[in-house]
């Protein structure tokens, strides 16, 4: 029983990361006033590039680098379109997701045809137990026998909270999303900061995608991101634009996913129910969180800013 519980909770932490990392990135974009609905596509780009580079070079880190590079390019295109040309943000995001969904399958086919056995990543990210801490009974086994990217992601929660509360760039980013004109009168180049927000969200999505294909699953399959990008997007709203609340939400989704995996093995409940649960929960959470006196939603979210000069 203890073993099951530990593996369930350790798996929860592990499955939380793709949601959490992507949602944290989206937080930067949204705080700056840009909706990046292309998270699903960005994660797919990250997962695909990380896997391909890993497969061919045998280096997990080069895979991560390629994923980040690819996502940055995509974000540059997306950011340019929506920030400077004022193209509708949600529509561009969804179009981007559909484009990536199709093209990633296409390139995968091009590279591997229809393989009889799924090609595996050459060299995946290993588990990195933390000395001493990992020997703490129970907690250590859950929290400190994880991948490096897991520690990094949870560290980013604190860093992000600090960034938005205590740094100059943090309040500028908030100002760009709340009252860009106010930021401009203080000499801020609003649209550059907004692009920075989008680029940060791309880097975080790339990390999440890399983590999926070369840390926990070791292979790339079409549609493997499986809606996580959309859920991460919802998590930002669910978490009321607060990094710690977003983490709480992500843990909930991670737990449901871990439970679904466990049920697949033990078959207590039909695991399809648990596969459905995250989506049902997303809707429920959004309904519940919409009953709130003052929304924390950035006032100029999704609104293009044109400098008056």
């Amino acid at each position: 029983m203890r073993l099951i519980l530990i593996s369930l909770l350790a798996m929860t932490v592990r499955m939380t990361v793709p949601y959490l990392c992507t949602a944290l990135g989206e937080l930067y974009a949204q705080k700056s006033g840009v909706l990046n609905l292309g998270l699903e596509g960005m994660m797919t780009v990250g997962a695909f590039l990380a896997f391909m580079v890993n497969y061919h070079t045998g280096s997990a880190w080069l895979g991560l680098l390629a994923a980040v590079g690819g996502c940055l390019l995509a974000a540059l295109l997306y950011g340019g379109l929506v920030i400077w040309f004022g193209v509708d943000q949600p529509i561009t995001g969804i179009a981007f997701n559909l484009l990536i969904l199709g093209s990633s399958s296409f390139f995968y086919r091009l590279a591997f045809g229809v393989p009889a056995t799924m090609p595996l990543a050459e060299r995946t990210f290993p588990l990195r137990p933390i000395p001493l801490l990992s020997h703490i009974p129970f907690l250590g086994e859950i929290l400190f026998q994880q991948y490096g990217l897991v520690y990094l992601t949870f560290l980013l929660v604190g860093c992000s909270a600090f960034f938005f509360r205590r740094t100059k760039a943090g309040i500028i980013l908030i100002a760009c999303g709340e009252n860009p004109k106010a930021a401009e009168t203080r000499g801020v180049r609003v649209n550059r900061f907004r692009l920075a927000g989008v680029l940060i969200s791309a880097v975080f999505s790339a990390i999440a995608g890399t983590y999926l294909s070369t840390a926990i699953f070791n292979q790339y399959t079409a549609g493997m991101v499986a809606g996580r990008g959309y859920i991460a997007f919802a998590l930002v709203i669910f978490g009321k634009w607060n990094p710690v609340h977003i983490m709480a939400g992500a843990l909930l989704f991670g737990f449901l996913e871990a439970l679904a995996l466990l049920m697949q093995v033990t078959a207590l409940i039909p695991h399809q129910f648990l596969l459905m649960a995250p989506y049902a929960l997303t809707i429920l959470a959004l309904v519940v969180t919409s009953f709130k006196s003052r929304s924390a939603r950035p006032a100029c979210l999704g609104v293009r800013y044109k400098s008056s000069r």
Partner: peptide
């Protein structure tokens, strides 16, 4: 029209 950020 005030140039303030209401949430800060």
């Amino acid at each position: 029209h005030f140039m303030l950020v209401p949430t800060l």
